[in-house]
Computed example of a mutant assay.
Amino acid sequence: MKGRLGLAKISFLGLSVISAAAATPPLRFDRDTVGFANMTVFEYQNGIAHLRRGESAKQKRYTRRCFVLCRTTMQFKKFARFDPHAPPLDDGDLAKRIRQVTCRAAWRDPLPDEQRVVFPGYANLRQLSKARGFVLQRNIGYGWPTYWRLGNARTFFEPGTGYQERTHEKLSAVLNRGDLFVGFLTTLPHLRINHAVLFYAREAGPTGIDRYLVYDPNHPEGPRHLRWSQRERSFEYEKDWDFVGGRVRVYQIYGMPLQ
Results as ranks from 00 to 15, higher is better:
Gly3Ala: 01
Gly35Val: 03
Phe12Ile: 11
His190Lys: 03
Ser16Ile: 04
Phe29Gly: 13
Lys170Ala: 07
Val182Leu: 00
Asn139Gln: 10
Tyr215Asn: 06
Val182Tyr: 07
His190Pro: 00
Gln59Glu: 13
Gly162Arg: 15
Leu180Cys: 10
Leu125Ala: 08
His85Trp: 01
Glu221Ile: 08
Tyr163Trp: 07
Arg64Asp: 08
Thr155Ile: 13
Glu55Gln: 11
Thr102Met: 14
Ile18Asn: 14
Phe79Ile: 00
Glu158Val: 03
Leu111His: 13
Val182Ala: 09
Phe235Arg: 05
Phe12Thr: 12
Thr40His: 02
Arg231Ile: 14
Leu5Val: 13
Leu188Ser: 02
Tyr163Arg: 06
Asn176Cys: 05
Lys58Ala: 07
Lys9Ile: 02
His219Val: 11
Gly160Ser: 13
Tyr237Leu: 10
Ser234Val: 09
Tyr62Val: 15
Met1Trp: 11
Asn218Arg: 11
Arg52Pro: 00
Asp91Val: 00
Gln252Ser: 12
Phe184His: 12
Pro110Ala: 05
Val34Ala: 08
Thr155Gln: 08
Ala95Asn: 05
Ile18Glu: 10
Val101Asp: 12
Gln45Trp: 06
Ala22Gly: 09
Thr187Ala: 01
Ala106Ile: 06
Gly245Asp: 05
Gly133Pro: 11
Ser56Met: 11
Gly92Arg: 03
Ala196Leu: 00
Val174Arg: 05
Arg31Glu: 03
His168Ile: 01
